[in-house]
């Protein structure tokens, strides 16, 4: 589903954000990317939907090469939902408008159809009563659930999560992780940048550990929990 082949990304001549990264994600898999801040996790995520213009390598999503000149990047992005650390809901729009904007403008869905769909998604994330509210009236956990609903409204084949719980108060993390866990169980292809190791161990098919712009280790959730005492990622797992 997603092939990342020898991707390198420089922000400027001296700052290399990704250094020859390769990774392959199959349909229906959930892959968690973790690692210290500045290690290139979010950059890698943004390469998948072409928000980051990597200079070297290839990213192929569902058979389409992201950075190829002939690629309709908007069409590709419509198939890839993305959820951000700071929600990035549109503050001037209601929850309903936030969710229906892209389906109406990109998918050319009628308002009636888009709104019906949006309501169904709000039911699914547990906050149908917030449809006519503005983002600033919601709690962090609610905002992030709206953001997930907004991404799902495009019926994406892939969902990207960029530290979806890092900006949340502890008591709200669970409600967001629950929604993500359900999604993963339903067979959504997901790439999740997170520090939530419980989620990673419980849900991820594979965990990728990044450090200094490279993937330094990959394995299953159980690999990592049993490998706690080894060098490298170990210091990270222990929270230092």
């Amino acid at each position: 589903m997603i092939q990342i082949q020898h991707v390198s990304l420089w922000y400027d001549k001296t700052h290399k954000a990704l250094d020859d990264v390769s990774e392959s994600i199959r349909r229906g898999q959930t892959v968690v990317i973790c690692g210290p801040s500045g290690s290139g996790k979010s950059s890698l995520l943004r390469c998948i939907n072409g928000l980051e213009r990597f200079q070297e390598g290839r990213v192929v999503v569902d058979g389409v090469s992201v950075r190829q000149p002939g690629t309709d990047i908007h069409k590709l992005r419509a198939e890839i939902g993305m959820v951000f650390q700071h929600f990035e809901l549109y503050p001037h729009m209601t929850v309903m408008q936030n969710i229906t904007l892209a389906p109406m403008r990109v998918r050319k869905m009628s308002r009636a159809v888009a709104e019906k769909k949006a309501m169904a998604l709000l039911e699914r994330v547990g906050i149908p009563e917030k449809a006519s509210r503005f983002p600033e009236e919601l709690s962090g956990g609610q905002k992030q659930r709206v953001a997930i609903a907004r991404a799902l409204a495009m019926e994406p084949k892939i969902m990207l999560f960029d530290e979806p719980t890092s900006a949340l108060d502890p008591e709200m993390i669970k409600e967001v992780l629950d929604v993500m866990t359900d999604l993963a169980r339903e067979g959504m292809t997901m790439v999740v940048v997170t520090h939530e190791m419980g989620f990673a161990r419980g849900v991820a098919d594979r965990i990728v550990f990044m450090s200094q712009a490279k993937i330094v280790e990959t394995g299953t959730g159980s690999d990592f929990s049993s490998a706690r005492k080894t060098k490298g990622p170990a210091s990270f797992w222990n929270g230092s």
Partner: peptide, 29 residues
């Protein structure tokens, strides 16, 4: 904030649509 245009573009909106529906309405205020 840059994240606004990133979110809009990530959802498949074109550059023009991003400016028209997401950035300008907020900026105008």
């Amino acid at each position: 904030p840059e994240g606004q245009s990133m979110a809009a573009r990530a959802s498949g909106l074109t550059g023009y649509q991003t400016v028209r529906y997401v950035i300008l309405p907020q900026a105008l205020r």
